[in-house]
Amino acid sequence: MEYPEIDAFASLDSFIHRLDPRAKIVSFTVLIFSFAFVNDIKIALLILMFSALVLVSSRIPLTFAVKRIRLVFFFLFPLLIIMPVTVDGNEFVSISGISLSIEGLLYSSLIVIRAMAAVTLALIMLATTRFDVTMKALYALGVPGILVQMLMFTYRYIFVISDEFSRMWKAMECKGFRLKANYYGLSILGNTLGMLIIKSYDRTSRVYQSMLSKGYGGRPVTMIQFKMSAKDYVLSICMTLIAIFVHTYQLVLL
């Protein structure tokens, strides 16, 4: 089965790939937060270009990235239509009696651009590190063990459960079932999901038994071997400076 994996290109090589996973998570998170609070559309355009530049230098195939970023864009796109109509301000055009405001347009563009920049960065962060490494880095950064373990199990079993579901679905289709939006179709779908939950419940007890037989005592069990080099410090300090700069450039440039 083909899985849509976020870390499919984690084995490529670029300076972003080589960045220590902990440094990567921290500096990208700082950047994302900083970008999310930018209030000037010109700066917003700059950070979007910056994110695109990082994306290109990470060597992640653009089609892969665009496919995912596109989803966010579609989600936010309605804002570009709704806000010019609803936000009061100077009218710049009026279409059959409905006036569109400049403020609304600017404000919605700002939101969309900021979001796209932030999502691009998040995507780069996740796509340039193997997902298991990301989780271990989170643990190393002090994220509570219980959360990390939940994340690990989710990551591991989402594939097992989706395989299970696709097997059940195939079996149903082999017996002539076609999903239609009627009472019958939906009740069968409900039963299938119920079965899936019961199967997963049974599995949890078996997984727990096998964890116990390997000596599980409640804490996450992984070996973490990360090492920060000078390069990692330099790069993350640079990124943090950029994050600060986009909010304080007036002070700095004056």
């Binding site: 193997r130 989780m135 591991r156 599995r203 997984v207 096998s210 964890m211 069990v221 992984t222």
Partner: peptide
């Protein structure tokens, strides 16, 4: 084996 392999790698 899916019960026994519960870790990411």
């Amino acid at each position: 084996p899916d019960d026994q392999l519960f870790m990411p790698t």
